[in-house]
Amino acid sequence: MVKKILFIRRDNIGDLVCTTPAIHAVRNHYPDARIGILVNTYNVDAIRNNPDINEIYTYEKAKHAPEKNKISVWLNNLKVLHKIRKEKYDAAIGCGSYSPRLARYTFITGAKKRIGYLKKGMKSKFYNMPLYEPEEILHEAEKTFNLLSCLGINGAPQQLRIFPSGDEVRKVQDILNASGFSKEKYLIAFHISSRRPENRWPAEKFMELGKLILDRYNAAILLLWSPGSEKNIYHPGDDEKAEFIKNSLKPKPIACKTTKLGELISALSLSSLVVCCDGGAMHIAAALQKPIVTVWGSTNPKSWAPWGTRHVILTDGKDASNVSVNDVFAAISTMLG
Score class of each variant (00 low, 15 high):
297 G>C: 07
310 R>S: 14
186 Y>E: 02
301 P>M: 04
232 N>C: 12
136 E>Y: 10
326 N>G: 13
247 N>G: 08
216 R>H: 08
55 E>I: 14
10 R>C: 11
121 G>F: 12
97 S>P: 03
260 K>S: 07
282 M>Q: 13
121 G>Q: 10
37 I>C: 05
327 D>S: 15
123 K>G: 09
90 D>F: 13
237 G>C: 06
259 T>G: 03
50 N>C: 11
120 K>W: 11
120 K>N: 13
164 P>H: 05
216 R>M: 00
309 T>A: 09
112 K>S: 09
81 L>Y: 03
205 K>T: 00
54 N>I: 06
275 V>M: 06
206 F>V: 02
22 A>E: 01
330 A>H: 11
18 C>R: 02
142 E>G: 05
40 N>M: 00
67 E>R: 05
290 K>F: 03
188 I>Y: 02
39 V>R: 09
129 M>N: 14
205 K>C: 00
113 K>M: 14
18 C>V: 02
326 N>E: 15
13 I>C: 05
8 I>D: 06
153 I>R: 03
280 G>D: 12
7 F>I: 07
44 V>W: 07
168 E>H: 10
39 V>W: 01
271 S>W: 00
26 V>N: 04
302 K>P: 00
170 R>M: 10
241 K>L: 12
335 M>T: 13
330 A>F: 02
270 L>T: 03
77 N>I: 02
193 S>Y: 08
215 D>H: 13
93 I>C: 08
198 E>N: 15
130 P>Y: 12
194 S>P: 12
262 G>A: 09
124 S>K: 05
116 G>V: 07
129 M>Q: 15
230 E>G: 14
292 I>Y: 02
90 D>P: 09
111 A>N: 07
20 T>P: 01
28 N>S: 13
177 N>G: 11
16 L>F: 06
277 C>L: 06
41 T>L: 10
128 N>C: 13
143 K>Y: 12
168 E>M: 15
23 I>H: 02
87 E>H: 08
322 N>F: 05
79 K>D: 10
304 W>F: 11
15 D>P: 08
132 Y>F: 15
266 S>E: 00
329 F>Q: 06
253 P>M: 02
173 Q>N: 09
126 F>H: 12
141 A>D: 03
188 I>A: 02
227 P>M: 11
51 P>G: 08
227 P>H: 08
310 R>F: 09
